[in-house]
Every structure is written in C-alpha cells, then in structure tokens.
Design a protein around this nucleic acid. Structure first.
Lengths: 173, 173
DNA sequence: CGATAGACTTACTGGCGAGTAAGATTACTG
DNA sequence: CAGTAATCTTACTCGCCAGTAAGTCTATCG
C-alpha cells in the first residue's frame, strides 16, 4: 500500500500523482487510503517517514565507532548506495522533496537531511576542529553524496565500492 | 513579467503556482501571459531558460583559462554564490527542478546541470586523468556546490570567500 | 472624425481530482 | 441462521485552475 504510493509518487511527483492512481495500483479503492492515512498529505508524510527511517537506520548500522574518518565515510557511502539501489522509489521521493520549496512534507525531509549532515559532521570531527567549517562541509558532502548516487544510478558499470572510494578520497586531512 | 513568474514559482512550486497569481503579481491579466508564452509550461520553460542562461554566463565570465584547478574552482564558486545571492528565485526554481521527477522542464534543467558538470570536469582534468572518475567527481562537486550554496543562504555571517575556499580545498591533488 | 488594428480585460467553460455519503459485502458472534 | 460489526466499493459533490471567447479601450491612419 505504501509501496504503491511510493512508486506513483516517485514516477509523477506529489501533485501530479492522483489518489485514484495510487489506489488502483495498490489494488484497493480510494476511500481505503483515506481511512488509513486521512488525507493525501498524510499518505505522503507516512511514506516519507518510512523511507527516511529506513535510510537512517541503514546508515546507523553501517557505522563502526572505532574506525578512521576515511573508513567510516566509505562504509557509510557503500551503505547509502546500497539503500538507493534497493529503494529507487523511496530515494527518488526523498531526493525530490529535499529541495527548498514548500511541499507538504518539507519539515520531515529537512529533518532527515540535517540528521544526515550531523552524522557526516561527526565523522569529519576527526579531521576538522572548526565547527562551522565542519557543518558547511558536512552539508556539502551530503549534497555530493546525493548527486553521486544519482550519477551512479546512470552508470551501472561502476561498482559501489569504486564509487564510494571516490568521495572518500576527498576527505580533508 | 518573467520576474513575477519566477517569484511565484519559487515560492509555490510549479503546480501550486496559479496563472492568476502570476498575472496579478505582474500587474497584468492572465490572457497576456497566454499571449506571450502560450501556456503555463511555456512560461515556466522561458523562465528556466533565462535563469539557466544567466547562471552559465556568470560562470563563463569567471573562468580564467590559465589558472590552476584550485584557482578556477574558487573563482567559479565565488561567481556561483554571487549568482545565487542575487537571484534567489531563479536559483530556487532551478534547484527545485533539478531533481529527477517528470516536471515540464526537466529536459532543459538536466542539460544545464550536465553543462555545469562538464565545466567542473574540465577544471578537474588538470588533476585527474581517469575520465570516468572525473565525470563522477564533477557531478559530486556540482551537488556539493548546490548544497553548500543552500547552507550558505542559511548562514549569512559566512563570507562567500570563506565558503568557496572550503570546497576548493577538497580538490584532489 | 469615423474606421480599423493592436493591446488588454472581464467573465466564462470544462475537466480533473481531493474528499465523502451511502450502500454492499464479508466475517464473526450467540 | 439472524443480527451486527468491520471492511470495502460505487458513485457522487465541490472547488480550483488552465485555457478561451468575446468584448473594451486606446491609438494611429485616411
């Protein structure tokens, strides 16, 4: 049910996805969606929340506290690419909503993004003292990772490992 | 006229921006928009085209062929941040549309983005031979720049120069 | 000073889609 | 096997908005 919603949202975007389309893809009728999620915004929010939680949990699992900044970044990137690979729709919706405009779920996506940045910032803390520079670079790395993930989806010949290694090399020493 | 359209598109997004709202903000009536641009998609496309051309031209002006990769990246970033600073609406619309979904102007934004990546790739050519890695990193840098620009808009205390220097330091040697 | 062309407006239509009312169908109890 | 509660569907309403038809105003020309 959320699965079907995700596919339609990913393919069409929030506004152009109709509840009828989602219902029919899920094999149920529209009032069921309203019964379970209250509104279109509610359905969207539920989907975003689930996708975001899954992404964050994947990253949390990948973290090994003792490692160097390079190792932690590499592991995180591989995990991230694995998530993207296995959840194209979820990734696409999250990424689409990550932009600044006033969508219905901006709040939660901004939150997810800033958590990502916080995770990256903690990794960078091993190499950089200045907290402002660290915060800025963390955001830059998040954007770089997102963009690189989209590049990677268009270049299936490249392995996750090679791709992750590329960004890892950029960590300042 | 395009100016008014840009403000409304930036504030509301494509679909939620109504032609009435744009017309009223521009101080004219709706049929004029249709007279000049044919359709809502046409208006949007025209606005995107203008914003994208302005961005690319700013970057083209900033390039100094003889310089090092670091210098060129730095100058390009400062120019980019200057553009973003002076054209919030244009930047916001370009960035919003840069995502993968099937908007009405995806084609031209994808094109602008790949041109940006090509410019960055040429800069990186001074440091990296492998063309695939270069292409991947160029996309990563574009994403990093976009993300960093948004961070910068939220941190007005930071100067353009400091901010640009941060990303410049990441160029691999 | 009519007439005619261009620029612009008001006031509509038509369709799409979010949300819902009311009924049908299934499962579950005494 | 009634009765009833939960689940689900069909079949609507209602507002919004892209796009347009028809008319109004202004200006330029014979």
């Amino acid at each position: 049910m959320l699965e079907a919603a995700g596919e339609v949202f990913a393919a069409q975007g929030f506004h152009e996805a109709s509840m009828d389309a989602i219902a029919s893809r899920a094999g149920i009728s529209k009032p069921m969606l309203y019964n379970y999620f209250g509104s279109k915004d509610g359905l969207y929010a539920a989907y975003i929340a689930r996708s975001g939680a899954a992404l964050l949990s994947v990253l949390r699992e990948a973290s090994s506290p003792g490692a160097t900044a390079q190792e932690r970044m590499y592991d995180g990137l591989v995990a991230f690419l694995t998530y993207v690979e296995g959840h194209r729709a979820g990734w696409s919706v999250l990424y689409s909503e990550a932009v600044g405009r006033a969508g219905p779920a901006v709040g939660s996506v901004v939150e997810i993004r800033s958590r990502l940045a916080a995770i990256v910032s903690r990794v960078l803390a091993l190499e950089l003292e200045d907290p402002v520079a660290r915060d800025a670079l963390a955001h830059a790395f998040v954007g770089a990772g997102e963009s690189l993930a989209n590049w990677w989806l268009d270049h299936p010949a490249q392995s996750k490992q090679e791709t992750a290694a590329l960004l890892t090399r950029l960590i300042p020493r």
